[in-house]
Amino acid sequence: MLKNQHIKIIKPLIFLVALLPLAMVAQGIYMRTLVNPLEGIIHTSGEWALRFLLITLAMTPLKEITGSAHWIKFRRMTGLYALFYASLHFMAWIGLDQLFIVEEIIESIIDRPYILFGTTALLLMIPLGVTSTKGMIRKLGKRWKKLHQLVYPIAILGVVHFVLLVKKDLTEPLIYAAILLALLGWRARLRVAKIRKRHV
């Protein structure tokens, strides 16, 4: 069973491990082993934004399944890392790919559904990041929970973004889609069970 003092060690560890993908890209650029840094930065940050979103969504099921409430203590950090990598992903696209050319950025967002979905997902994540502090949780009360249910459309948009953008091999995005489906399905099942109980 996890104890509070364990959490105090595990949390900073997760914090550091979560920075590893970024460190590896930085090392690749520095050592010149990453041949196409633009592609490396964009793929890595996008992949980890999605992974952290799914990890964040896995915390509640893990809590229920293991019967340990500690999982929820990691949720804010993994959620903020999802936002961190998604922002990096977006900024790399804006700066390195689009060279900050505003007309082209707007044109891309309008013309290409996958960019629209990805951008929307990132924009929706910002209010969640801003309201992730203890003070905001207290201030918003019941509304906080409602607001943070935005994570579901965000994750769906993120996965659809990935499915639409791959060149050929759909295996990887479909794995993400399957995990998301399982995580959402688990919640849906729970909700259905609750409604049934009420009706009995």
Binding site: I29, R32, V35, N36, P37, L38, E39, G40, I41, G95, L96, D97, L99, E104, S108, D111, R112, Y114, L164, L165
Partner: peptide, 22 residues
């Protein structure tokens, strides 16, 4: 003529330190 999912106006010439499409 753009690829349906990205523009072909610019490219990344390798090697490139940060790989911008300049």
């Amino acid at each position: 003529v753009a690829h349906p999912r990205w523009s072909q106006k610019r490219e990344v010439r390798l090697p490139s330190l940060f790989g911008s499409k300049n």
